[in-house]
Design a protein around this nucleic acid. Sequence first.
DNA 1: TAATTTCCTATTTATTTACTTGGTTTTTAT
DNA 2: ATAAAAACCAAGTAAATAAATAGGAAATTA
Lengths: 169, 169
Amino acid sequence: MRLTTKGRYAVTAMLDLALHEGKQPVTLQDIAINQEISLSYLEQLFALLRQAGLVRGIRGPGGGYRLGQSAGRVSIAEIISAVDENSDMTRCGGKADCQQGEECLTHELWTELSEKIYQFLDDISLKDLLQRPRVCEVAERQEGRRKAAIKQGAAAQTVTFDGHSIGGT
Amino acid sequence: MRLTTKGRYAVTAMLDLALHEGKQPVTLQDIAINQEISLSYLEQLFALLRQAGLVRGIRGPGGGYRLGQSAGRVSIAEIISAVDENSDMTRCGGKADCQQGEECLTHELWTELSEKIYQFLDDISLKDLLQRPRVCEVAERQEGRRKAAIKQGAAAQTVTFDGHSIGGT
DNA sequence: TAATTTCCTATTTATTTACTTGGTTTTTAT
DNA sequence: ATAAAAACCAAGTAAATAAATAGGAAATTA
């Protein structure tokens, strides 16, 4: 269990999906704007999330992503694990041969900590996060911005050149 | 509280000092060999540890490093904090303005986790680690190797060229 | 048929870790 | 005194990873 912005991005994006459970699928474009993550980086992350069965992609206009399982079933630990491929706590994780075939001095400590972190994060589901007041507040603020952006975008939406949109961010 | 090999190296090295509390100071050379960490990298880490008052350097032959405080007083969290300068959990740590001046969706989650990890590591002192059977085993194994190396080295010790030792690893 | 979106692959840039090099100072022992 | 052993110091390099970029192909909808 390694903790980086990569995992944080993934959790944030998944939470965005969870906020729209049952509604329209969410596009990566949308997440990119709202959560301030680069679109292509999101694509990379979602490729991993899809492999892990955590999301389902829907192609074509009106498409986007949906959760692969219900928000109550997905733990934060699962999300981070899916995205952090070598989560071996840098050398000292699964195998105990970090010290010329044997354990290093602090091996036990790191595996223990790693487990603790995993347990903590595995005990929190996306649904749990949705129920937190702080998260709700931020979500509503973002939802407001989202709608405003759509209203603005409705006029400018057709402004494209060679398939690339001009104007807007 | 960020967890990297950097912090792990620091804790391992500090534990090595703790194992020799009351005895001769331990040289970085010694730690480098036993814990398989590059000498100069250790020097960098120890510069930080010294700034934090966690170690005391003793110059000259027969010198080395000693703990700055007794092993029971030094927590693992302190060691990692001393070495990981920007332990801001990558963007989302101290300040709550990760999202254009406001909190991001998962802000609360990360600060919470960060605190949990800190608490866990702050509750473990070097002395606590010394009392673990697994740690003792590894320490004894290393102590054996250490003595063997000294015996071997006694003869080859003078083999130097331009002040740089030749032979050995 | 055109637009929208996922999906895919490769490359580039930036950052950080880890290591290296080449010193200087201080202290001890011969 | 002198040489050796150590801490101390300052750059620079290499490697790994994160993050972003670029340029598409395939699927789906309107």
